[in-house]
Simulated assay, not measured.
Amino acid sequence: MAVIEFINASNNTYKGMKRAINYIKNPLKTAEYLTGGKDCSPDTAYEEFIMTKQNFNKEKGRQFIHFIQSFSPNDKVTPEVINEIGKRLLEHEVFKDFQVLYATHTDKEHLHTHFIINSVRFTKGYKWQLSKEQLESVKEYSDELCKEYGLIVVDGEKGKHKNRGEYRATDKKQSWKYELYLAVKHCKWCSRSKNEFIKNMNKLGYKVDWTDERKYITFTTFDGKKYRNRKLYPPEQFTKEALFKAFELNKQKADKKQLEASMELLLTAIGMISKDNSNKYNSRLSLTALEGQAKKERAIEETKGRGLNWENEK
């Protein structure tokens, strides 16, 4: 299980930044080989961060960003693998041109990696900004990495990320797009082939135009709205190549009956949401309503062993 948590630092100054850097490099919590830097050296990260700020005259305001990627004690994995996952997480586009110091801590029952990001981009001097959509994308990428390494993937710790995935539902102009995104994501991990993917999307009410002649896949909603896979965010996770890669992974992780059970459980949960008059979401946004909702957990418990949670897929 990997949970991404951003820490609000009360003392976000040069002094606070140095304290945070010293904390994550504390030899009582980590080892030198579990400490690394993206576009900076772990030994001189503090000085390099300051130099970047001075180069662009961006020495005021927020100085650093601190976040943690935590894993469950139930994940039987070594600190080296957790460190590698953290390093690969920084390949996400939101971290491009930002200096990042990271260290995997082994002092707690659960392994976790700390990240300290310089608040100023070293190429153009832009300050760090992270939209809700980008935050969701980082979490999704973290989940993809966990899946690749065979780790457990869940929604997060109880009470955290409660509204994960629901932020777009408040915008009626965008909610159908987010609902489509959820449908594609679910079918991506419940299918072992292109044909199974299309069939599962059909079950959720979507038409799929996927041909070899066209570069992009076009999805059509129940009311005729069309949307291409290149517009789903992040687009690199929904290319034809990425989908085929997921299908191959599914073949390795589960047999056909397990994936069919996953899809059936999802449809059962959707039926529960659609029949619930207290549901604040439109019945056509049932997947959005399932995101982070207790009903999803109850549906899983009531049909335990039927497969939706075969890798605790969200």
Rank of each mutant, 00 (worst) to 15 (best):
A2L: 13
A2M: 11
I4E: 13
I4N: 12
F6G: 01
S10F: 00
S10I: 11
N11K: 13
N12H: 08
Y14E: 11
K15F: 02
M17N: 05
K18M: 10
N22D: 15
Y23W: 09
K25W: 03
T30I: 01
T30K: 01
T35N: 07
G36T: 06
G37M: 08
P42Q: 05
N55W: 12
F56A: 01
N57V: 13
K60C: 12
H66M: 02
F67D: 10
D75H: 09
I85V: 15
G86Y: 09
L89Y: 09
H92C: 10
F95D: 10
K96H: 11
K96A: 00
T104W: 09
T104P: 08
H105S: 01
T113G: 10
N118I: 06
N118L: 09
G125R: 03
K127W: 00
V138E: 13
E140A: 12
S142I: 06
E144L: 07
L145H: 05
C146S: 07
K147G: 10
E148M: 06
G150A: 08
G156C: 08
E157I: 03
H161V: 04
E166K: 15
A169R: 13
K177P: 02
E179F: 00
N195W: 11
Y206H: 04
W210L: 11
W210V: 04
R214K: 15
R214E: 15
R214V: 13
F219G: 06
D223H: 00
D223G: 00
K226Y: 08
K226W: 06
Y227C: 12
Y227R: 14
R228M: 11
N229R: 08
N229H: 12
R230E: 12
K240Y: 05
K240V: 02
K240I: 03
K240W: 00
E241W: 01
F244I: 08
A246C: 10
N250E: 04
Q252N: 10
K253Q: 14
K253E: 14
A254L: 05
A254H: 04
L259W: 07
A261P: 00
L265I: 02
L266A: 07
T268I: 13
I270R: 15
D276E: 15
N282G: 12
S286G: 11
T288G: 15
L290G: 08
K295A: 10
K296D: 05
K296E: 13
K296Q: 14
E297D: 10
R298N: 12
A299D: 04
I300Q: 01
E302H: 09
G307T: 03
N309V: 04
N312T: 01
E313G: 05
